[in-house]
Simulated assay, not measured.
Amino acid sequence: MKGIVIAGATGVGKTDLSIKIAKKIDAEIISADASQIYKELNIGTAKITDEEMQGVKHYMIDVVDPGEDYSVGDFERDVNNILNENSQKSENRKNIIITGGTGLYIRSITNGFAKLPSKDEKIRKNLEDKNLDELQEILKKLDKESYEEIDLSNKLRLVRAIEVCILTGGKFSELRTRNIKNNDYEFLKVFLTRNREELYDRINRRVEIMIAKGLVAEAKKVYNKYKEKLYKISSIGYKELFMYFDGKIKLDEAIEEIKKESRRYAKRQMTWFRKEKDYIICNLSEMSENEVLDEILKRWENF
């Protein structure tokens, strides 16, 4: 079986292109976005609307409530169930496109996933009571490589990495590379990028559009509903507004922080995918969308 991965940084233009490809090759789309997994986080995650889907079936959107734990292991299991169910069909089998910017999610499907220990409530509770600085120091001592790779502002990721180190006595950075692949798909991998200045400008404008669409009201609704579990909601666009609702920063400061964090995240995504193997790089600052589309379809035919 074969499929396509359309990966890239936030705001680069993955959604629009993936829909166009899906319509050309009669495909269904699996979202690989760690924030779009969550219900109710719509505007701030640039979640695709039913209208924007244009009739193309999408999976892995609105899977769990904000505040619920959902790991890369959960994603790997759920997506492989979708892939394996599709590959077993004798008729009505669909082509598959995986699109998103969460590199670990994508890698767990294309390269396989290490079977790490399940969460330990006692260890987790102890770690969750600590602040970010304390967690960063613990991880730095236990696993320097993970400390240098991980998103140090994401408390959930820090807790999980430390938890695995404690439970196994090993290093999370090493254990997570001992992969087992649980599907029979080979993927044509495409990394969409843009020149940095253009991408950052698109990100800034996108944040302003989100604010105009009602992001503040949406975040306030989530803030009021999940008061006890807010520390688990680390998606950009929400955590900054939670600080505003707490009275720690002003609204204009929160908006600037969302832009800054989005740009930082995009930079980390670009670094991640440039290090990955076997990706075709398409720069949308240097090629038109139609040229990229033609290039992908040509490679798909020969894949």
Rank of each mutant, 00 (worst) to 15 (best):
Y59T: 02
K144V: 11
D74P: 09
T49Y: 04
L215W: 11
S288H: 08
D74I: 10
Y147S: 13
E149N: 15
S71N: 00
K239A: 10
D252A: 10
I233F: 07
V164I: 15
K23G: 09
I98G: 03
E240Y: 12
E301C: 02
R124S: 12
I106E: 00
N224K: 15
S18V: 00
T99H: 04
G13N: 01
S235K: 13
F113W: 12
V190T: 03
K141T: 04
K57V: 03
N204Y: 09
A219S: 11
I29R: 03
Q88E: 15
E186W: 03
Q269C: 09
F172S: 03
E261V: 06
N302E: 13
S153I: 11
N86Q: 13
I162A: 08
T99E: 14
L139N: 06
E240D: 10
E218R: 11
T15K: 14
K144H: 14
I233R: 09
Y38Q: 10
L17E: 00
D78S: 12
G169R: 11
Y265T: 14
Y231N: 13
L152D: 03
A7D: 01
Y70C: 09
K248E: 15
P66T: 05
L139S: 05
K277T: 11
K229A: 08
R160K: 15
I4F: 00
N224I: 14
R205G: 06
Y244D: 04
L158C: 12
L83P: 01
V292F: 06
Y38L: 03
M60K: 10
V72C: 12
S262R: 08
A34C: 05
N302L: 13
K115Q: 14
D62C: 11
Y279F: 15
N81A: 11
L175M: 13
I166Q: 01
K229T: 10
K125T: 15
K2G: 02
Y105V: 06
L199Q: 09
M53E: 08
I43P: 09
N290E: 03
L132T: 14
R107I: 04
R107V: 06
Q54M: 11
I21K: 00
P117V: 04
A9R: 00
K213T: 01
K89E: 04
Y279Q: 10
E137D: 12
I25A: 02
D294P: 02
E228T: 14
V56Y: 04
G67W: 04
L17R: 01
S90Q: 13
E128A: 09
V190L: 06
I211L: 00
S35V: 05
T177F: 03
L41N: 05
N179W: 01
V159F: 06
A22T: 10
S153P: 03
K119S: 14
S108T: 05
D143L: 07
L83R: 00
K227M: 04
I21P: 00
E128V: 09
V56Q: 05
R107Q: 14
M243N: 14
E76M: 01
I97E: 02
S87Y: 10
